[in-house]
Amino acid sequence: MVGEPVLEVAGLSGGYGSIQVLFGIDLTVGHGETVALCGPNGVGKSTLVRMLAGLNRPSAGRISLQGNDITTVPGPKRVRLGMSTVIGQQAFGTLSVRDNLRMHAYPNGRHEEKAHTAVDGALAVFPRLAARADQPASTLSGGERQMLVLAKTLIQRPALLVIDEFSLGLAPVVVGGLLELVRRLAAVGVATLVIEQSVNVAMSIADRLLFMEHGSIIATHTPSELRADPDLARRLVLGGHAA
């Protein structure tokens, strides 16, 4: 990693009320780097995403975005500071694809020409969305809805992109197209944190893979290390430290 990380998480702990879910999470994501956070359901991945997005307040630790401490900063301001978070496939179902995208052009202000340019640029990246630009978002397939939420992030021009459950429920051919988009974003310097259950998907896109167990990060490996030792990845995914 060169220079200051885009995202730095240090000693992050917390959960829901009296139930602690995260225990001292440390991680960084650099400029143009893609980091995958892996692990089975229930280990705290989505709780971490909610804390990064400002939806949950940690009980301890610090979150920094481009050198700024955002631990207590409200979620909407984190977007303005350069963080874009994709959680699920949320969209305004009754609005057209184009209008959904226009809703996310607000960082460009209310300047109509800039908004049109941003929306047209996002649609150019996704020809399937462009062909459905005037259809209600409720008519899109699961893969197309995932494209729509990623297209929204293009409009916001984030420094950091956080994607929860990247490939969940999507056909392999759709996942392949989305992976290519993330690679293109990394090529222009966007830092990306991907929460992913499939280690194969994570290895195909990430520079580093972090493995979680019981609310803690237990291991960090590169794709080449995991390919050289398939049993290592299997043990980590099943919830066990490598010997």
Score class of each variant (00 low, 15 high):
T85K: 05
S138K: 09
D134R: 13
G44Y: 03
D99Q: 12
G61E: 13
V73A: 04
R57P: 04
L154H: 09
M147W: 06
R98E: 14
A131R: 13
A233P: 03
L37T: 15
G61W: 08
L65D: 00
Y16A: 07
A242L: 11
V237T: 03
A60R: 07
V73I: 01
G17H: 01
V119D: 13
T153P: 10
A105H: 10
L179C: 02
Q135G: 12
A60C: 01
T34E: 04
R57D: 06
Q146L: 04
S138Y: 04
R57V: 10
G143S: 03
V194C: 01
I19P: 10
G177K: 13
R128K: 15
K114F: 13
S138R: 13
N200K: 11
I195G: 08
V49E: 09
L27P: 01
L95W: 06
F166D: 11
V43A: 06
Y106M: 07
A219E: 10
L179S: 09
M1K: 07
R102S: 11
A186P: 14
P5Y: 02
T192P: 00
R234M: 09
R145I: 00
P230D: 11
N200D: 11
A133Y: 00
S64F: 03
H116L: 13
D120S: 14
P58N: 13
N108D: 13
V119W: 05
L101C: 10
L236N: 06
R183L: 05
Q66G: 05
A124C: 15
P58C: 09
E113V: 12
R234N: 11
R110I: 08
V125L: 13
G189A: 04
S59R: 12
V175P: 04
P230V: 11
V190G: 07
A10L: 14
M83T: 01
L48N: 06
K152G: 08
L101P: 04
N100F: 14
D229I: 05
A124H: 14
I163L: 15
P76R: 11
V125E: 14
A242H: 10
D229G: 04
